[in-house]
Amino acid sequence: MEFTLNVPSAGTYDLYVRSKDNPDRGRLLSTGVELQLAKGWAAANYPQYPFVVLGRQENETYALPDERDTVVKIQLK
């Protein structure tokens, strides 16, 4: 499953897939860098949706590698 992010920067990003799809992890398609699923307070407020962390910390915002076409590949359990 792949998602294209088309925002200039993001921190923790909602994947808009139901948690029943059981996402396990994500990777930036362009670089292969592994992304973790968020477990912080923001994600806890919406348990039905998984969030992926696009940087080192969940509470910070980072510029995307490509602000027009960043693709996150999600691996399901």
Score class of each variant (00 low, 15 high):
residue 27 R to F: 11
residue 66 D to S: 09
residue 5 L to Y: 12
residue 47 P to I: 06
residue 23 P to H: 05
residue 67 E to K: 11
residue 21 D to Y: 06
residue 23 P to T: 02
residue 19 S to G: 01
residue 5 L to I: 12
residue 72 V to A: 04
residue 71 V to K: 12
residue 67 E to Y: 02
residue 44 A to M: 06
residue 61 T to Y: 07
residue 39 K to F: 02
residue 73 K to V: 13
residue 43 A to P: 02
residue 58 E to C: 02
residue 68 R to W: 00
residue 37 L to M: 11
residue 31 T to H: 02
residue 49 Y to H: 15
residue 11 G to R: 06
residue 8 P to E: 04
residue 2 E to N: 15
residue 29 L to H: 05
residue 26 G to Y: 02
residue 70 T to W: 09
residue 58 E to V: 03
residue 19 S to L: 00
residue 69 D to G: 10
residue 62 Y to D: 09
residue 74 I to K: 14
residue 27 R to N: 07
residue 49 Y to W: 06
residue 9 S to G: 03
residue 30 S to Y: 01
residue 46 Y to E: 09
residue 50 P to V: 05
residue 8 P to F: 05
residue 69 D to C: 10
residue 4 T to C: 15
residue 5 L to S: 12
residue 41 W to V: 10
residue 34 E to S: 10
residue 36 Q to I: 07
residue 75 Q to R: 10
residue 29 L to W: 01
residue 49 Y to K: 11
residue 6 N to W: 08
residue 4 T to W: 05
residue 18 R to I: 02
residue 64 L to R: 10
residue 37 L to R: 08
residue 55 G to Q: 13
residue 22 N to C: 02
residue 60 E to Y: 02
residue 24 D to C: 04
residue 73 K to R: 15
residue 48 Q to D: 10
residue 19 S to T: 08
residue 27 R to P: 07
residue 36 Q to H: 10
residue 40 G to E: 03
residue 45 N to Q: 10
residue 61 T to L: 07
residue 26 G to M: 03
residue 76 L to N: 09
residue 20 K to R: 03
residue 24 D to A: 08
residue 62 Y to F: 04
residue 39 K to T: 13
residue 14 D to K: 10
residue 56 R to C: 00
residue 55 G to E: 11
